[in-house]
């Protein structure tokens, strides 16, 4: 088996001291395109956010390529939920994508030509180059999602975390995004996606984690994406027809 990209040990997270995630152990091998699935309130976003240090866990630890997350930030990129920001903010698409370079710049230093070039390349990858000077509120939901994706691409990370990137986007954006994700995997990157639509899991992903407060199962889609695990996760007798 290949290297472990993300390792989560005994992670427990509570909101207002109400438990959300319980004793999660998770190993994500390098180079997989993984979906995290589970019912609403299962702690999917929470898992990503606590791996990324946005939320403070009560217990447990996270390591990225064997080192603590703090030392490996440069290797990680994050695509938050589209609804988490104010899209009426006075800024342009290019500006938002440029924000992806801020992390490598560090404090005070300003982005220059090199950063701009990287941002433009990322915009082109997501098919949004012609929208670069567009005010972000004038973009459609799908276009906004692509901008967020481009911002993460600019970070040129090894591991990508995405929180529901297919939420409220049009069909063509969904295809564009999944193609980019597949290209990332091909390039040896690890992609972890919080996902809602169970139907598309076998088609889009090769790795899956079932989550409902506890970790139910994790592994290759072809081995573990079955009715048994779905029922365990969603609590009801869940049947999904897996396409060949």
């Amino acid at each position: 088996m290949s290297k472990i990209a993300v390792k989560v040990d005994d992670l427990t997270v509570a909101y207002n001291y109400k438990p959300v995630l319980w004793d999660i152990d998770l190993e994500i091998p390098e180079g997989v395109l993984m979906a995290i699935v589970g019912p609403n309130g299962a702690g999917k976003s929470t898992l990503i956010k606590s791996i990324l240090g946005i939320l403070k866990p009560i217990a447990g630890s996270v390591s990225i390529y064997g080192k603590p997350y703090d030392k490996q930030r440069q290797k990680v990129a994050y695509v938050p939920q589209k609804g988490s920001v104010d899209w009426d903010f006075p800024t342009t698409a290019l500006d938002v994508v440029m924000m992806g370079t801020y992390g490598s710049l560090g404090w005070i230093k300003r982005p220059g030509q090199k950063e701009k070039k990287a941002a433009l390349e990322a915009l082109e990858k997501v098919g949004m180059l012609s929208f670069k000077s567009r005010q972000i509120s004038q973009l459609s939901g799908g276009q906004q999602q692509r901008i967020f994706l481009a911002r993460a691409l600019v970070q040129n990370a090894a591991i990508y975390f995405m929180d529901e990137p297919f939420q409220g986007v049009d069909a063509s954006t969904e295809i564009a995004i999944i193609n980019i994700l597949k290209a990332l995997r091909k390039a040896g990157k690890t992609v972890i996606v919080v996902h809602h639509d169970l139907q598309t899991v076998p088609e889009y992903f090769d790795w899956v984690t079932f989550l409902n407060v506890k970790k139910i199962a994790t592994g290759p889609v072809k081995d573990i994406f079955n009715d048994d695990n779905l029922t365990k996760t969603y609590g009801i007798n869940y049947k999904v027809s897996i396409q060949e």
């Binding site: 427990t12 509570a14 001291y17 438990p19 319980w22 004793d23 009560i58 217990a59």
Partner: peptide, 9 residues
């Protein structure tokens, strides 16, 4: 919560 986490572990 810590106790329970510990027991669960």
């Amino acid at each position: 919560v810590s106790l329970l986490t510990f027991l669960l572990h």
